[in-house]
Design a protein around this nucleic acid. Sequence first.
DNA 1: CGTTGGATCTTCT
DNA 2: GAAGATCCAACGC
Length: 202
Amino acid sequence: MAILSRTFYTSSDTVQLAQDLLGKTLVSTIDGVRTAGIIVETEAYRGPEDKAAHTYKGRNTERTKVFFELGGMTYVYRCYGMHHLFNVVTGQEKEPHAILIRAIEPTEGIDKMLERRKMSKLKAALTAGPARVTKAMGILTELHYALPVYEADSLLTIETGIEISPEQIIASPRVGVAYAQEDALLPWRFRVKDNIYTSPAK
DNA sequence: CGTTGGATCTTCT
DNA sequence: GAAGATCCAACGC
């Protein structure tokens, strides 16, 4: 499989990229052990205008500083004090956009993912949900913040995967962002239709 | 099946 | 001091 080049993350609009990422393969390599899965659910966050984004109004803190780099870097942060959520920074320098990876369909290293999730049998709950994805792949804020996903020796890479046609993509409002008022209604959540690792179509 | 509450870090008021 | 880009176990039907 081929690693996507850095230009993939900088040459299109973030909302388009969130759709383009569906079908691509997220790969984590820790201590030589590879775990991988097809991306089947994403959400776009477009600071500084987007009220739901951590970079709303250009907020630049220790946590969000990687947003301001050129696209293709990882943004991992802690959510509700106990989960790690994984994003890919997109766009140009000083353009604080990112795409949250919400669900994957496991393809490689499933035994390792089951072990990390303390599960015995493969089912959708293994990697359906942003915090589940990071747990299954061993992604941690301390270990995986601000890494290039376009470099072959990176702990996290994104590679080519399967073709997803526009008809297979479902757009809907983002999850858990009611506080963002009118921006909460933007249809910036994208899912692969009929995939069991995302919630069913409505 | 649906609902509830606990875990507990970062950031902003 | 409060709330958040969440998950899961423990309930009650």
